[in-house]
Design a protein around this nucleic acid. Structure first.
Length: 283
DNA sequence: ATGGGGGCCTGCCGGC
DNA sequence: TGCCGGCAGGCCCCCA
């Protein structure tokens, strides 16, 4: 799915049409995504005002005037598409409904936000705002990689003695929340660390370099509007362009881009997922 | 407790 | 052209 930068890009895109606006109607077209929708979801959403839109890891949290929070996860293939916004003098009509449009929000102000998710690995839930961080999906998340709690002594402590590959450790959302397959591959490449090295064997220097690089990669990706793999779009419908900055992800057999390295990007499978790396400059 | 693998879904692409 | 296997940005759950 959308990893942290893509989710942050979606959140930013939704802000102008959702924050401060009333949900005039929520239309729910099926009983579930990955899990059943909460009881009476449409009724609980209708007429509430969206007080704020937050992000935690890869989750979007909409705090509502009803003291409830709408939790949204995009899974692998979820999208939030906006229509009906006024751009200059032109008014964009709502497009015809598409297959896999599972939830449709009509907002005060005329915008329509459509959650479309072919694979249905996404999720939505409604929870008490005051208890949001205790939601089972959020309770065990590690620190935000762009927040103050993520620093090298923290990461070193969490990696210590772990006998899992560093790649798996960085994908573990309880260690750091928001990384996915792409950004872990990119970060390990930039750090010059071979993805199958054991987490517990990282040196202090390597851990320190990793924390900085993880921040850098995510920040650059957010600044680029995320990545538009397989046509993933921002809420506005625009394509992000960080995919053009991938240095290893999906580049099997292509030349390594490190200056002076004549290696070739390789692919291996770890825990059933593709890892891309340069066997030459990642040690 | 920790690590690995299966499973959930649909769509797309390449090979035969 | 059609069918089939493999693959896909996630993450819960079960097993050893």
């Amino acid at each position: 799915m959308p990893e942290l930068p893509e989710v942050e890009t979606v959140r930013t895109g939704l802000l102008p049409v959702m924050e401060g606006k009333i949900i005039l109607s929520a239309q729910i077209n099926r009983p579930d995504l990955r899990w059943p929708f909460p009881e009476r979801m449409a009724e609980r959403l209708n007429g509430t005002r969206v007080l704020g839109l937050r992000r935690r890891s890869k989750y979007i949290l909409a705090d509502l005037s009803s003291q409830e929070t709408l939790l949204i996860h995009l899974g692998m293939s979820g999208r939030m598409l906006i229509s009906g916004t006024q751009i200059g003098q032109f008014h964009h009509a709502h497009p015809a409904p598409q297959k896999h449009d599972h939830v449709v929000f009509d907002m005060e102000g005329g915008a329509r936000v459509t959650f479309n998710d072919p694979r249905r690995f996404g999720a939505m839930d409604l929870i008490e705002t005051a208890r949001a961080e205790h939601h089972p999906l959020l309770a065990n998340l590690g620190p935000e990689p762009l927040g103050n709690a993520f620093h090298d002594t923290y990461l070193a402590a969490r990696l210590r003695d772990r006998r899992t590959p560093i790649k798996s450790a960085l994908l573990d959302q309880s260690i750091v929340a928001g990384l996915g397959n792409i950004y872990v591959c990119e970060a390990l490449y930039r750090a010059g660390i071979k993805p199958d090295r054991l987490a517990g064997q990282m040196t202090a220097t390597e851990v320190s370099r990793l924390t900085t690089i993880i921040r850098d990669v995510l920040t650059e990706a957010i600044d680029s509007g995320g990545s538009s793999l397989r046509d993933f779009r921002q809420a506005s419908g625009e394509l992000g362009y960080f995919q053009h900055s991938f240095q290893v992800y999906d580049r099997e057999d292509a030349p390594c881009l490190t200056p002076g390295c004549d290696g070739t990007i390789a692919r291996m499978v770890q825990s059933g997922r593709s890892t891309f790396y340069c066997p030459r400059c990642q040690q």
